[in-house]
Amino acid sequence: MKHYYNPMSRAALTDWMLKELDIKYEQISIDLTRVTPELIALREINPMGKVPALVDDTNVITEVAAICAYLADKYPEKKLAPDMQSSVRGIYYRYMFVTGNTLEPALTLAVSGFEHPNPATAGWGDTSRVISTIESMTPEAAWALGERFSAADIVFGGLLDSLVRFGTLDASAKVIAYVERLRKRQAYKEAHRALLDL
């Protein structure tokens, strides 16, 4: 299994997932600032030329949520996803996919000084609804799905961690407390060493 990665990118989240699983994988570091053989190889498997990308045998998986969902299902014994028949599987999917589909697009526009001219027609709505969604989905205690940590915490919580770290979100006490719980995990610390050393 090959993981195409840069420590200062979203690939820190998929690296965190791999470290939570405690499995062997090949880390291929990509310098995104210049054309290297590794970057050329990445563009062959992912025309976007973006990390993370995961190659598992003949499977090529890109996008943080897709990689984390794939890995959680590949290693069910690690219990980083609810069982397929679990009543919380739908909630898990919501946490996994709201970040890339809704939260990030709206917040990326907002940080750039833009708002969609008609947010009712945009899949991500507007900033105020995104903030309300973050607040309502952030767990009061423990983890997104309750007492058991899951891939949902890496994907959803990982985004909140970045928003707090870079000052993109005026975070509530609840969000900050959740992010602090995430940052105490050993796999988080190992995957975010480059940021922690800044």
Results as ranks from 00 to 15, higher is better:
Gly100Pro: 00
Arg129Gln: 15
Ala66Met: 05
Ser136Gln: 07
Arg89Ser: 00
Val130Asn: 13
Arg148Trp: 11
Ala110Trp: 07
Lys78Gly: 05
Glu77His: 09
Ile134Cys: 00
Pro82Asn: 01
Gly100Asn: 10
Ala141Ser: 14
Cys68Ile: 05
Pro82Ala: 00
Ser128Asp: 14
Phe114Val: 10
Met84Asp: 14
Ala141Glu: 14
Ile134Thr: 02
Leu109Glu: 13
Tyr75Ala: 02
Leu71Pro: 03
Met137Ala: 00
Thr127Lys: 15
Leu109Ile: 08
Pro82Leu: 01
Trp124Lys: 04
Asp126Thr: 01
Thr121Gly: 05
Ala120Ser: 12
Ser87Lys: 15
Pro139His: 00
Thr108Ala: 14
His116Asp: 12
Val98Met: 05
Lys74Ala: 11
Leu71Asp: 00
Val130Gly: 11
Ile131Gln: 06
Ala110Gln: 10
Ile91Trp: 09
Ala120Ile: 13
Val98Cys: 06
Pro117Ser: 07
Ser132Ile: 04
Ala106Tyr: 00
Met84Pro: 12
Thr121His: 07
Ala106Ser: 07
Ala69Trp: 11
Leu103Pro: 03
Asp83Ser: 14
Phe114Ser: 11
Asp126Met: 02
Lys79Gln: 15
Ala144Gly: 10
Ala110Val: 05
Leu80Arg: 04
Asp126Trp: 04
Arg129Thr: 15
Lys79Pro: 11
Ser112Arg: 15
Arg148Asp: 14
Thr121Ala: 13
Glu135Cys: 03
Val98Thr: 08
Thr133Leu: 13
Ser87Arg: 15
Leu80Met: 08
Phe114His: 12
Val111Met: 15
Leu145Met: 06
Trp143His: 06
Leu145Trp: 03
Leu107Ser: 07
Ser132Lys: 12
Pro117Gln: 03
Tyr93Asp: 05
Thr99Arg: 04
Asp73His: 08
Tyr70Gly: 02
